[in-house]
Amino acid sequence: MAWKIFSRKKNTGYEENVKAAREAGGGELLPAQDTRAAIEELSQVVKNDPEAVEIYLALGNLYRSQGEIERAIQIRNSLIVRPGLDRKFKARALFELGRDFRRGGFLDRAEKAFEDASSSGYDSAPIQSEMARLAAERGGYEKAADAYGKLGLPLPQANNLVRLAKEYFSEGKESQAHRSLRHAIRAYPGAIEAWLEQLIQAYKAGNTRRLGDILKDALSKVAPELRFVLLEGLVQEMNRAEKSISQPLADHTEWERAAPDKDVATVVASTLEGQEPDVLLLYYGAVFFLRVGKREEAKDWLEKALVLQPGFWLARLELFELSKVDQTLTPFFKEQLDFFMGHARNVRRFYCRRCGLKRDQIFFNCPRCRSWHSIAYRTDFSQ
């Protein structure tokens, strides 16, 4: 268990205990039960040795990871006001206080704490990273992108440039938006969010030729394990358009020039045919065929996907659905089958390769562990 790594005796393996406490405190992935137990154990260590500042800081990190922000803040403040505290420990306590405030949503206080940590001599790189994140959370995407660029972190730089582009699009500033997207791709050529936004804008403009060109370029630049995000994102956007148009009182302005599904399916399938065989590309090709009623083409692509990966459950599900029309089913059996098929389609298809978080919507930055581009597709139901 996590709490057994800590010793009550400072003179036996003390440095190892401090290191273990620091590592446990910095993580966000401990199960809740283990984290709670570690908190209790660390509290006892601190109680027995109040000068173990490293362990005290780790205790605060554990409180923060549990969402107990007030207790984490109390620990930092008790250190900061401690007489004779070494300057480097005070600087670190201020830095962690800033992270506590940011986690609690007190962004102004977080900025002040980071500034104080900087004045106390704390390492500038992590402070700059936190300030960049603060800027992004406040909607200052241009400032955040610039900060991440200076830190040599092109992926979050590109992500914030895409968010800036979306803001420009919403304000009708299309030239600035497209410029921001191009800048994002120059900063990080594998930025799936930037390529996806370009695809969406081409779709909304009704420019299927450009959509095909962008998709072809994107498939060559994006990491192979992430290419499905481009197609899933486009499908989700088309679903949004379909849902909006089906509502008589909704504002359809956004979709007035959107490309017809038939044209999109044709250009997507044509582009995917030029790629090396890939189970997810074949699956999504079938998805686009199904949108426009091309059942035989969809069946063919699904069968090819299962040749590459026989255990791909969702491809089998769609093939089973296509075969229903050839079967004689009683009304009761058909009702039960439709019920289970509907639930199976709602299974969360995406997960984070790092922490295992499951989602039914695509993401670029994991909501739990904050890792970038860690999304994966659950081709195996056990994933």
Score class of each variant (00 low, 15 high):
residue 30 L to K: 03
residue 358 K to R: 14
residue 147 A to K: 12
residue 379 T to I: 12
residue 277 P to G: 12
residue 223 A to F: 01
residue 223 A to L: 03
residue 312 F to E: 02
residue 277 P to F: 06
residue 284 Y to H: 15
residue 125 A to G: 03
residue 50 P to K: 00
residue 148 Y to K: 04
residue 302 L to T: 09
residue 291 R to L: 08
residue 55 I to F: 01
residue 8 R to F: 04
residue 46 V to L: 01
residue 163 R to F: 02
residue 120 S to E: 15
residue 362 I to D: 02
residue 307 V to D: 12
residue 201 Q to D: 13
residue 109 R to D: 15
residue 139 G to A: 10
residue 185 I to R: 10
residue 355 C to L: 00
residue 360 D to G: 01
residue 104 G to F: 09
residue 50 P to W: 02
residue 161 L to R: 14
residue 167 E to H: 11
residue 195 W to L: 07
residue 358 K to I: 00
residue 373 H to K: 03
residue 177 A to H: 10
residue 101 F to T: 00
residue 49 D to M: 00
residue 140 G to Q: 15
residue 94 L to N: 05
residue 8 R to Y: 11
residue 126 P to L: 01
residue 222 V to R: 06
residue 50 P to Q: 03
residue 165 A to H: 04
residue 349 R to M: 11
residue 203 Y to G: 07
residue 62 L to V: 04
residue 103 R to H: 14
residue 192 I to E: 14
residue 305 A to V: 09
residue 218 A to N: 03
residue 178 H to A: 07
residue 67 G to S: 02
residue 224 P to Y: 02
residue 195 W to I: 02
residue 37 A to F: 07
residue 226 L to Q: 13
residue 93 A to C: 07
residue 31 P to C: 06
residue 258 A to M: 14
residue 115 E to T: 14
residue 113 A to K: 04
residue 90 K to V: 15
residue 240 R to H: 10
residue 207 N to R: 06
residue 216 K to M: 04
residue 294 K to W: 06
residue 88 K to F: 02
residue 77 N to G: 00
residue 121 G to K: 09
residue 153 L to Y: 09
residue 292 V to G: 01
residue 363 F to Y: 14
residue 109 R to S: 15
residue 25 G to H: 08
residue 31 P to V: 09
residue 168 Y to I: 04
residue 313 W to K: 07
residue 77 N to Q: 15
residue 279 V to R: 13
residue 21 A to T: 03
residue 115 E to G: 12
residue 173 K to E: 13
residue 314 L to H: 02
residue 223 A to H: 06
residue 221 K to A: 15
residue 115 E to F: 04
residue 168 Y to N: 11
residue 178 H to R: 08
residue 52 A to S: 02
residue 343 H to A: 01
residue 155 L to R: 14
residue 275 Q to P: 13
residue 105 G to C: 13
residue 379 T to Y: 06
residue 356 G to P: 11
residue 371 S to Q: 13
residue 321 E to D: 11
residue 326 D to F: 12
residue 212 G to N: 13
residue 48 N to K: 05
residue 239 N to G: 06
residue 193 E to V: 08
residue 131 M to N: 14
residue 66 Q to M: 10
residue 141 Y to A: 00
residue 298 A to V: 11
residue 244 S to Y: 00
residue 44 Q to E: 11
residue 15 E to P: 00
residue 165 A to Y: 02
residue 61 N to H: 01
residue 213 D to F: 08
residue 66 Q to R: 11
residue 239 N to D: 15
residue 169 F to K: 11
residue 317 L to T: 12
residue 61 N to S: 09
residue 247 Q to K: 11
residue 283 Y to P: 11
residue 209 R to L: 12
residue 172 G to D: 08
residue 7 S to L: 01
residue 223 A to K: 06
residue 209 R to E: 13
residue 211 L to P: 06
residue 114 F to E: 07
residue 210 R to L: 15
residue 189 P to D: 05
residue 88 K to L: 08
residue 56 Y to D: 07
residue 30 L to E: 00
residue 232 E to P: 12
residue 295 R to G: 01
residue 99 R to Y: 01
residue 139 G to P: 10
residue 13 G to W: 05
residue 233 G to L: 07
residue 283 Y to C: 05
residue 64 R to I: 00
